[in-house]
Each structure stands twice: as structure tokens, then as C-alpha cells.
Design a protein around this nucleic acid. Structure first.
Lengths: 216, 216
DNA sequence: TGCCCGCATATGTGATCACATGGGAACATG
DNA sequence: CATGTTCCCATGTGATCACATATGCGGGCA
């Protein structure tokens, strides 16, 4: 089977399909930290040869989504506390700016959509669905930041999410909280009121809260 | 020649050698915007097959250093003004934070090194050596930011430098200025004085100045 | 029983090949 | 001379193979 870019499968290249699927899995916390991946295993799962599997893995390594050992083996990263704190600081830096830029463009339709997404987030929390929570929580943030019209900045924020994916699964998995997200309501309120300082504070709190309780 | 990881060449893998070389070229502005690259051409230059060339290129595309057309051809990016402004804003955001974190650790030895580097920067400016200027200017910034002990943040800043590499070459090439970098002296002064607000302002000015004069 | 050594194999790396396709030059046409 | 068309080849994609080596397991030895 030497078929290249077959017109089924939406005309997408093989390595891109593999890349996108793995990226989503990692970002949403579907893979725990430290899990090993093999090129032949990936190839077998996606029914492709090692070549596209290698390209997808290389790309994910470049984005910090996967860790490459000195012998070339790949696995999801196991982040140190220092690294987690640094990534949290990066989230704060980037996302506060993104929210601030989105504020003047945040009309009522956006706020409605954020409210709807936030209800799904609360549902995931009550169901203790860690992966669902991470996915909808990121959807909440991305929906807001898309309004900032700053694609490079959003891409950087998503890269940070990607790096934190497996760790977030581990953290929220052991967290066991049931309260719906209070900071999200603060974000929506600040958007409604056009309150920029309040928005910056709410985003910063939302982004850094879950990562503070590590310390072990 | 099927030799894998031959012990000469510092035991570094072929794709890594290609990657590092291309990355440095791009970041230092040795390649103009819109220049096309081919896998076979890269392979021929580095005396490797297409495989490591592809991996290196993929990685650089993932970092935004190269642009991948819809048909798979790769070239250095030609950035829009909006994109340049956004990347400048990212530089400001990240590098102000890095400088601020480096400030409490900036002892006299560091300031001496920065002064030395800055003399080389001035020399490059007087020689109108665009590539040399970009290289030493980035060395100035990296030397300072290394003190921040924030590797993820520094990596992000370097990714932004990488994306701006070819564009910086084009901008400074048409700039033709001869004044030595004044903002660098302001940065050093603020470091000596332990003046954090002054440092933040100086870094922000230094980072955003050269990119303001585009507007066409 | 615990530890170390060796071997089999799983795994990554790089080369090479077959193939589809897009880009650009050469040519034709108005 | 300008513009559209055709065709060839340069180029990217993916599969497969050969090879070096790290990993991990099993057996032997203290």
C-alpha cells in the first residue's frame, strides 16, 4: 500500500492526521505523564509506516508536548515543580494579555457562548470527568482568546497548554473537587462590566489556582 | 554510506546537526524572507539523505521558523505587518518578565559581560554588519535572560527571535543607522541601580523600537 | 537470596525507492 | 507582444530496508 494522500480521509496527509490526533490526546490529558510511545506502535495504531509517525513525534517534541530521552525514546513529560510553576507563570503572562485584548471586542454573543461552555465545564466537574473538564475548560479560554485577534500569541498559549496536558490530568485526577469554576464567573462578569483590571485579575487567578497546590 | 551516528562529528545525530545549523542561520538573519528551501538541496549541502533533512525542516516549521506552503514547499516566512507587531508585543511581554526575574541575580560580573558584548554590538553597527548585529544583539539579551533561571520562558523568547530572524535582516538591512544602541546602555544602568521599573521600560523600548518603523 | 553479566529483541536512525503532483518553462495563439 | 496551454521534471510523501544500540529479562555466581 503505497498510496499517497488518498482522497478519502479528507485529503489530509498521514503525518498531519497522526500529529493532530496525538496533539489533542496530549493536550486534553488523555495520556498520563511518563507514558512511553514507540514509532512502530504509533504506526500500527494509525495504519501508517514509521515515516509519518516520526514526523508527527518530532513535531510534538519540538513543541514540548513529548520528551525525547538521550537514546531517542519518546514519552510524555514528567514535569518538575519548578517547570510547572514556570509554565503557570507563562500562562498568566500570555492569557492575561489575550483576555485584555479580547475585552474591547467581547460582545453579548461571545458572553452567551462562554456561559454555555461554562455550564458544560460545571457538568464535567460534577461528573468528575478529568479529561472532559480539561477539554471544556480549554475551550472556554480559547473561545475568549480568539477574540483577541492575536494568532501568534494564542498559538504560544496553546503550546503551554500542550506541555501541561499530562500533568493537568494527574493534578486534577488527584484533586477531586466538586465546586463549579468560580473564576470563570468572575471572568464573565468582568467582561460584561468592561472591567479590565478585574478581568486581568480573574484570568490570572483562574490560570494559576489549580497549579498552586502541587508542592509535592 | 549507511553509517548511523558515527563517532566523529561529536556523536550528534544528522538531523540535529542540520537542525541546529539551519536554526542559527535563520535566527541570525542569514537568510532573507521568502527564500525557498528543498529537502534534496539541504540533504546535498549537509551530505545526508532526505530523511534527516525532512526532520530538521519539520521541526523548524513547528517552531514557526519556516513556512510550509499548501503543496509542501518550504521557505522562510514573509511576515505581514500585523504579524510583526504581534511578535514584537510577544517579545516585550516575555523579555520584560525575563529581565525582571534576572534583576535580583544580576551581579557585577554579569554587568561586565553585558558591557563587553555591547561594545561588540556597537562595532557591528558601525561596520553595518546586519547579521553580526543581530547575532551579538541576541547574545546580549540571552546573556541577561539566562540569569532569570526560567528555561521555558527563555525558549519561548528564542522561538519569537527565530520567527523574526529573516524579517529582522530585511528591516535592519534597509535601516542604515549608525548610532550605537542607546537602550542597551539604559538596560545596563537600570541593572546597576537595581531599578526594576526602569529596567522594564528600557527592555520594552529596546525590543519594540526597531519594529515600529515598518508601517509599509 | 541478591546482584551482576550477557544476550535477544525491541526501537530509533538514516538511506533509498516508488509515486503523485505542482511549478515553471517552452510553446502556441490571439 | 501579451496571454493562455501543455508538458516535463523537480519536489514532497510515504514505505521499506539495513543497521546500531539501548533495554530488559534470564541465568549464573557469590
Amino acid at each position: 500500500m503505497n498510496t499517497v494522500a488518498r482522497s478519502s480521509d479528507a485529503d489530509i496527509s498521514a503525518h498531519d492526521r497522526v500529529y493532530r490526533t496525538l496533539r489533542t490526546r496530549i493536550m486534553h490529558g488523555e495520556i498520563p505523564p511518563g507514558a512511553a510511545l514507540t514509532l512502530r506502535g504509533i504506526g500500527k495504531e494509525f495504519d501508517v509506516s514509521m515515516t509519518p509517525a516520526r514526523e508527527a513525534v518530532r513535531r510534538l517534541v519540538a513543541e514540548g508536548a513529548l520528551f525525547l530521552s538521550s537514546s531517542g525514546r519518546v514519552s510524555t513529560p514528567e514535569l518538575s515543580n519548578d517547570r510547572i510553576e514556570e509554565l503557570a507563570a507563562l500562562r498568566a503572562l500570555l492569557e492575561v494579555e489575550l483576555a485584555s485584548r479580547a475585552l474591547p471586542r467581547a460582545h453579548i454573543a461571545l458572553i452567551d457562548r462562554l456561559n454555555t461552555i461554562n455550564m458544560t465545564v460545571a457538568e464535567m466537574v460534577s461528573k468528575r470527568d478529568a479529561v472532559g473538564y480539561i477539554r471544556t475548560n480549554l475551550e472556554f479560554h480559547r473561545t475568549l482568546y480568539l477574540r483577541a485577534q492575536a494568532p501568534a500569541m494564542l498559538a504560544m498559549a496553546e503550546t503551554v497548554w500542550l506541555q501541561l496536558g499530562p500533568t493537568m490530568r494527574a493534578l486534577y485526577g488527584r484533586l477531586r473537587r466538586t465546586e463549579p469554576p468560580n473564576n470563570h464567573r468572575l471572568i464573565i462578569s468582568a467582561l460584561k462590566a468592561g472591567d479590565e483590571p478585574g478581568l486581568r485579575l480573574a484570568v490570572r487567578s483562574d490560570v494559576t489556582q489549580g497549579l498552586r497546590l502541587l508542592a509535592g
